[in-house]
Design a protein around this nucleic acid. Structure first.
Length: 585
DNA sequence: CTTGTTACTTAGCACTACATTC
DNA sequence: GAATGTAGTGCTAAGTAACAAG
């Protein structure tokens, strides 16, 4: 078998041809960051900052994933068709937190022998992990229950903190286990070894007067600090991109809820000035200054198409993806006329998570002309907006409205679209099920606007077929019930007694019930088909002001539980009481 | 201005637990 | 009771954006 790069078993497999992760090319001496002393000063001064501040924070520190067990002796590895008798040797040349095994890079000797991944045969290793997963699945009920209880115990011990006197849920209380880095898209660092995190890597953030978390026996924290202007409880630097990972609170916590609420309030403030901003950027399309023009056109695209800002990325560090400001000439095509419309721009690029954005849109003539201008004398690989960065764009936005950045447009347009679509699609006389379908349609309009895609579910075709079969059966049943009803009607007319009347009523109810079921099934089928490749969750969780949905529920008598599950209701608790039925975004 | 660092939000996928159907 | 379908959850990568320093 070939190297299978998908699947979690890889996390535990050996890294074969991983490059040594390069240290980020730090050019000069490390710059001075905020020190602990500065933090203390911040604490006492209560500087005006939009950062949420806390007074007291106590927690247990992160939970360290236990080390993996070594592969048993029987599991063999083949290279180029031959069994490698000595390799890979169990054991680990990296420091491990508990005695055990972890993924590692090849030694110098191994690298001399193993040069091509496609000559590696992982079959036995793969089977070992598949079997292990199957064994776990086949565990008797009591054993599973026991595992569950152990996990719950862990959650109780590590999964909560005390913040300003309240016990709050932590979002991710475990350090990330070592494994092979799985980037998305064509990632240059795919397959590199992600090191095990040790207590020595971890910075703890908590109140000075709290019980400081104990590092695991025989270990020490990298640092313990008390910075009350940040939301994280612990952090460490990861070795692939040398970015910092954080342990933070669950969305249901007060701190996160308030932040979320603020976000939507900023978007609502934009609503008040958006007309002005729009006429402003329209005017700037004709600006004499190139930079201003580019800014105005970019803003138009961000506003109209809900594009992301598009920060610059370091080449070779991540997959080649772009957003608005980092669009290149090769990503758009101009059509003077297409699909019966004028001034059509065709976009085709990879966005966040290497999700393809492919769209043809008619734009206003000045935008079209400007794009033409921006593309003149440029190579396909050149930046479309060569005078523009996200920083300068956001600087401009900040001047137009305090707190305004490019991403606010996405929030704003998503929420406005939901509100508008709900208004258009909901009919008061519809059943609850039909209303929920309308809600999903409105949600879907937003997801499409924001380009939230998903892979077609594995069993989609099959489950769709099953659904169609069910519909067919139901249709036959309805037809049959119709015939029976007719017969009962005729019987009642000839006999006219109470018994036949009763029978007639019964048949009528049966038919109604069946018709209802049929309607529900076809609605389900429509919904399913339309939703095939659209992910609704992301917009629901991150872009749609929950007060819009809650107000809609109240207005149309739909229970909120039909729209938000328990977790979502906890996250949006701030909005539950706030939004009356006439709330307007 | 550029560049690196830091903090936080947004994103899709794998897995799992539970409901439903056979 | 097994098989199947699906909603919910965990995970962590990949963005945005602010800020400091050269």
């Amino acid at each position: 078998m070939r190297a299978v790069w998908a699947g979690r078993w890889l996390r535990t497999a050996y890294a074969l041809l991983g490059d040594t992760p390069r240290r980020s090319a730090s050019r000069g001496a490390p710059r001075r960051r905020r020190t602990q002393k500065d933090c203390r000063a911040g604490w006492e001064e209560e500087k005006s900052t939009d950062r949420v501040k806390w007074r007291q924070l106590e927690h247990r520190g992160p939970y360290f994933a236990p080390a993996y067990e070594p592969l048993p002796d029987g599991v063999r590895f083949f290279y180029n068709g031959e069994e490698a008798s000595e390799w890979p040797a169990p054991g680990c040349d990296l420091p491990v937190f508990t005695p055990g095994w972890g993924p590692r890079e090849m030694t110098v000797e191994e690298r001399k022998v193993i040069k091509h991944l496609d000559k590696c045969d992982f079959t036995e290793m793969h089977r070992y992990f598949v079997d292990k997963a199957a064994a776990r699945k086949a565990l008797p009920r009591e054993e599973k229950q026991k595992l569950k209880e152990e996990a719950e115990k862990l959650r109780q011990e590590f999964g909560y903190c005390i913040l300003d006197g309240h016990r709050e849920k932590i979002g991710n209380f475990k350090t990330e286990p070592p494994g092979l880095f799985q980037g998305r898209g064509d990632h240059p660092k795919m397959g590199m070894v992600k090191r095990r995190i040790l207590p020595e890597d971890v910075v703890i953030n908590c109140s000075r007067d709290s019980k400081i978390p104990e590092p695991p026996a025989g270990h020490q924290w990298k640092e313990v600090r008390s910075d009350n202007t940040v939301m994280w409880l612990a952090s460490w630097k990861e070795n692939i991109q040398s970015s910092i990972k954080y342990i933070m609170l669950n969305p249901s916590s007060k701190l996160k809820r308030e932040k979320d609420w603020q976000k939507y309030e900023v978007a609502r403030r934009l609503k008040g000035v958006v007309d002005e901003i729009r006429s402003q950027y329209r005017a700037d399309w004709k600006s004499r200054e190139m930079k201003q023009r580019q800014c105005a056109v970019a803003l138009y695209l961000i506003d109209k198409l809900a594009l992301r800002a598009g920060n610059e990325k370091e080449e070779g560090e991540a997959a080649d993806t772009v957003g608005c400001c980092s669009l290149r000439v090769e990503h758009i095509q101009l059509h003077p006329e297409a699909d019966g419309q004028e001034h059509v721009v065709e976009f085709d690029f990879l966005g966040k998570d290497s999700i393809r954005y492919c769209n043809r849109v008619p734009v206003e003539k000045p935008v079209y002309k400007n794009l033409q201008l921006f593309m003149e004398n440029k190579e396909p690989g050149d930046d479309l907006f060569d005078r523009l960065t996200t920083a300068s764009l956001n600087k401009h936005l900040q001047d137009l409205m305090g707190g305004l950045t490019a991403k606010v447009f996405r929030t704003y347009n998503a929420s406005v679209t939901l509100q508008e679509q709900l208004r258009v699609l909901t009919r008061a006389e519809d059943s609850i099920a039909a209303k929920i379908l309308s809600y999903n349609r409105a949600n879907r309009a937003v997801a499409i606007l924001c380009n939230h895609q998903r892979a077609t579910p594995k069993a989609f075709e099959k489950s769709m077929q099953n659904l169609q079969t069910k519909i067919k059966v139901k249709k036959e049943q309805v037809a049959e019930a119709r015939v029976e009803l007719k017969r009962a009607k005729a019987d009642h007319e000839t006999q006219g007694d109470g018994k036949s009347r009763c029978f007639l009523e019964k048949k009528r109810r049966v038919l109604e019930k069946l018709q209802d079921q049929l309607a529900r099934l076809s609605a389900q089928a429509t919904d399913k088909e339309e939703n095939k490749q659209v992910a609704l969750g992301t917009s629901k969780l991150n872009y749609l002001d929950p007060r819009i949905s809650i107000a809609w529920c109240k207005r149309f008598g739909v229970p909120v539980e039909k729209i938000y599950n328990k977790t979502q209701r906890e996250k949006f608790a701030w909005a539950l009481g706030m939004a009356g039925e006439d709330f307007e975004f």
